[in-house]
Nucleic acid binder design. Structure first.
Lengths: 219, 219
DNA sequence: TTCCACCTGACAGGTTCCTGAAGCGCGGGG
DNA sequence: CCCCGCGCTTCAGGAACCTGTCAGGTGGAA
């Protein structure tokens, strides 16, 4: 895999470069946006690590430009802790992930691995469950090969079952998983979400055990 | 079982370590994330106890890094009461459980036991009783390898016998176990449930002792 | 044999659950 | 700024199924 590192801090840049090399990837390291544009015109990269504060402009603009040209190369933003708004702006502009400086080098490796996997031929581990194919990392589900869209709550619910296959989960346990501490749900919300899950994923994804709870259905 | 404790508070850390040792497990105790990463690179742990506020960074990032690398080691988060948002973030990041400081050491033991069971090679302890395999934690029963569905009352009844194998239980005792205090049962309800249990699990799961009560059958 | 404790099929009442529909709050687009 | 769409929650009617009760039957003990 080939990585383009855009970072003007020489100490950090060197550390990142070394880490990536240690992971067995190849890196090109530039310190300016114009050099980055030049590099990307010449070579195809699988991943761009983008610092947001650079001597010849802000990285956000660079990223937006990339995306507007239809470039889908994975981009991970490197940002300081106090630039929260930049971070959000970066994700909105089309970044795939971000890392807050100072960051752990092993964490960097992990992110790189994750993003790379998302983009390369060998994607994320996929759980097959009957007619369902579930990619937890990218949060996508296919039913009989057709994509299914789940909402946030539905995902949280389904994940709870997937993470403990075969285990009986009471409504109270599921509420704990779906809601922040202290939030009281005094109605049948869980039942409603179960119902929606079944409508989207099949009636038998979740089994009811009356008076006790729910359980992931047999594949 | 081998536990990695990541906690910079020396008083709390020592207490936790001693408790785990008292439970018969072995502990490695580090106070920094870099040391933790190093330890995990060298040794395989069954469980990580992770404080969120550490001198060299926040534990959340460490946890996310772990999960993104595909590491499924069980992680229990230790957090102060006022860091609610951190806790939620932690669970989202892939923590298995959390403990709010200050916590009871017996509570710690319980959680450790629960999480460890969930993750160790054979997840839940399975009780084999003749042709029956019973997984108390996930509330599932197999008879001759085939799953059997019990209702709530049937489970309560069966559990009463399993928790006191060999012991004679009078109908009055069983009623106390199945019903809230003050509920009066003025008929042969227990007999009926025993009958249903036998139909599902086999005639000899429960033995009748005329005039005395019932007892779990021989395996 | 007679009595008594227990077994078990049947059934009705009540609890639990399902699901369509409506209300609410939030964020995006006009 | 308002409007709109979307997701989440709540509500309510109805369905599914648990479960307590009863009655008739079985079998052991005296």
């Amino acid at each position: 895999m080939r990585v383009l590192l855009i970072e003007d801090d020489t100490v950090l840049g060197a550390a990142v470069r070394d880490q990536i090399v240690a992971d067995g990837q190849s890196v090109d390291w530039v310190t300016r946006l114009d050099a980055a544009a030049e590099a990307m015109a010449v070579a195809a990269y699988d991943l761009v690590l983008l610092d947001l504060m650079l001597p010849d402009g802000r990285g956000i603009g660079f990223l937006k430009g990339l995306r507007q040209r239809g470039d889908v190369t994975a981009v991970i933003i490197l940002t300081a802790l106090d630039q929260i708004s930049d971070r959000i702006e970066g994700l909105n502009a089309g970044a795939d992930d971000y890392l807050v400086k100072p960051f752990d080098l092993s964490e960097l490796s992990a992110r790189i691995g994750s993003v790379a996997r998302r983009y390369s031929g060998n994607p994320n581990p996929i759980i097959t469950h009957g007619a369902l194919e579930v990619d937890l990392a990218s949060r996508s589900i296919f039913r009989d090969g057709k994509p299914v869209q789940l909402t946030a709550r539905e995902w949280a619910l389904f994940e709870a079952f997937l993470s403990r296959p075969g285990q009986l989960l009471s409504k109270a346990q599921l509420e704990d998983k779906l809601y922040a501490f202290g939030v009281e749900i005094d109605s049948n919300t869980i039942e409603v979400h179960i119902s929606r899950l079944r409508k989207k994923l099949g009636a038998d994804v979740v089994l009811t055990e009356r008076g006790m709870g729910y359980r992931l259905g047999a594949p």
